[in-house]
Design a binder for these strands. Sequence first.
DNA 1: TCTAAAAATGTAAACGTTTGCATTTTTGTT
DNA 2: AACAAAAATGCAAACGTTTACATTTTTAGA
Lengths: 359, 359
Amino acid sequence: MPPTRSKPEKPPDQSKVADAARVKATIREVAHRAGVSTATVSRALNRPEKVRAETRERVLQAVRETHFVFDGIAASMISRRSRTIGLIIPTITNSIYAASTQSIQHTAQAAGYTVLLGVSEFSPRLEADLAQRLLERRVDGLILTGGNHDQSLIEKMRTNGVPFLITWKLMRGKDWPSVSFDNYKAAWSAVEFLVSLGHRRLGLVCGRTDVNDRALDRRQAFEDCLERHGLAVDPVLIYERDFEMEEGASAMSAMLDTPEPPTAVFCANDIQAIGALSQCRERGLSVPGDISIIGFDDLPVTSYTRPKLTTVRVPAHDMGRRAAEIMIASIERQIPLQSVELQTELIARETTAPPRFRR
Amino acid sequence: MPPTRSKPEKPPDQSKVADAARVKATIREVAHRAGVSTATVSRALNRPEKVRAETRERVLQAVRETHFVFDGIAASMISRRSRTIGLIIPTITNSIYAASTQSIQHTAQAAGYTVLLGVSEFSPRLEADLAQRLLERRVDGLILTGGNHDQSLIEKMRTNGVPFLITWKLMRGKDWPSVSFDNYKAAWSAVEFLVSLGHRRLGLVCGRTDVNDRALDRRQAFEDCLERHGLAVDPVLIYERDFEMEEGASAMSAMLDTPEPPTAVFCANDIQAIGALSQCRERGLSVPGDISIIGFDDLPVTSYTRPKLTTVRVPAHDMGRRAAEIMIASIERQIPLQSVELQTELIARETTAPPRFRR
DNA sequence: TCTAAAAATGTAAACGTTTGCATTTTTGTT
DNA sequence: AACAAAAATGCAAACGTTTACATTTTTAGA
């Protein structure tokens, strides 16, 4: 029988070899080199205990030799799991979101997950588009910020059967699981603190409540707490602004130009508080002598303002870590998503004191 | 012939239908409903101009009716493109990295890309692991921070043929493309500024140069600039610390406890500068009367310290945007990655002045 | 040594798109 | 009306894994 092999198994594709430094190896080549089937390679890689030590070693050797790079996309395709978590936050620039993001990322990373990041810029519309894209990439879970979302987003998550978790806002009424502190309660404690110092005329600077339900909670607490103490809620002392120090400064400025300025101001976030504080000092006002200021978040920098800022410490890191942990537990062990309420703490530093003149 | 159909085509899987609100539709069902082939659906979705308007409309209608969610994983599988960019930064908590990250994210988002985020915590080892995971997820490109990387990482990127870009550090010597300002030059300008004010004894606080080549550049510039002016480089006035305000404060404290304290200090990042500034004021020293301080980065908060911090403005946003743009252009139009040098600017504010006593 | 059970491995069918090529339909020119 | 060219659509083969299920090998007990 003459040696006629009309169809050689695998013609070495010269062109391709020339292009890339090395042709990317697939599991198939690894299998061939190790003298096993692809199934065994897959097992050696994913569930090492399922293959004999000797075989495993042979496979690993082949992996090294071929410079094999696992294809997670192909794996996700069939296993229906991407080991990926979507995270949507309103902004990274505010370092308080950076803190929780860092923790989520850290926890996910440690568990072998990578996070897909989206920034919604406080727009539910943009958020929905973003989420759509994350869903298309088949994230195993989605971590959102706040409770203000486009209806279509919620539907899409349900359709895709993707679990989601809310951070930065406690979802009591709805059946959405959330990992957060209580914005209302925390803000209340801040206002209560000012009132307990003897302040009777209070001002508020907060985020835009139309796009930020955390700001809304905090404003609500401010108003309710004043009412509870029989104090006036003067609209001229309430400012909704963007998260910029400059905005805090200008809000404070407006307040001070008011016929009857407040003796204390609650800034519902530290960014604005820093601006407000700066504005007071710019005008030569003594803080807390002439006016008290309390912030919210406890950014690291608040220990370094002069005077040091009284504020409400928010468990940003814990929140991120817990959220990621709960999400991953849900993904891996089908543990239903559980809500968690975290606690805040009022950090009394140097920008608060009783008002100079008691009525 | 009796009607015996032993194998009905698609037995409705009751259990699944019960589980999920709706069974997820595939392109196949959309195609069937629209009365076209899957190829046409794919085209209608990806290259609308390639299908007749009428057909397109029919497909889109079917998409809506079936609540079809595109499977980007399956698409990536075959198209070899993931529309995904990997980004690895040392930390998010330092808001200067948050700024460039935000811009990268924003630009990518606008171009239809999703960013996969990794945080290396200044460890090349961890970074390599992280990158491996991103590569496994088949990112179309990788944006890294600085030039200090594990050899295995570089190899892997080459093996996978994934383009990468360095930010925050100009890669002159190596052939790696980078989008950055020149750390050395920028730091030099800061030190030069202090010297030009008349300072002769200078201190330095910077990041850990063993894990951070940006800090190394800046330190090098500090030392070289002093030497150039014939000034002493006193090791007792050089502090390498982590990026914490507290670290800046303690470094400054140590410097002030020195027999011959400096009249000016260059803090190679604003975080440490804020701590240093705070420490001076804590001790009742006048800044810039007794001591000058210059920072680096121009974080927003530096306009709100008292006195306002003199610093070097760094084009974090531009850098992020340009990096993302260049990466995407490279991915989509095979434009080779080009390096870009951005400029910095010295922002003279209130923490710098000539030394009180000239020699 | 034999045998049953357990462990290891192999076979092959998915997974849901994209895309080269073939075929059909439409358009435009004469 | 006929025809060529262009546009639209369809066919079917990938892409690189995972995973039931089947088969083979090993282990252990008698």
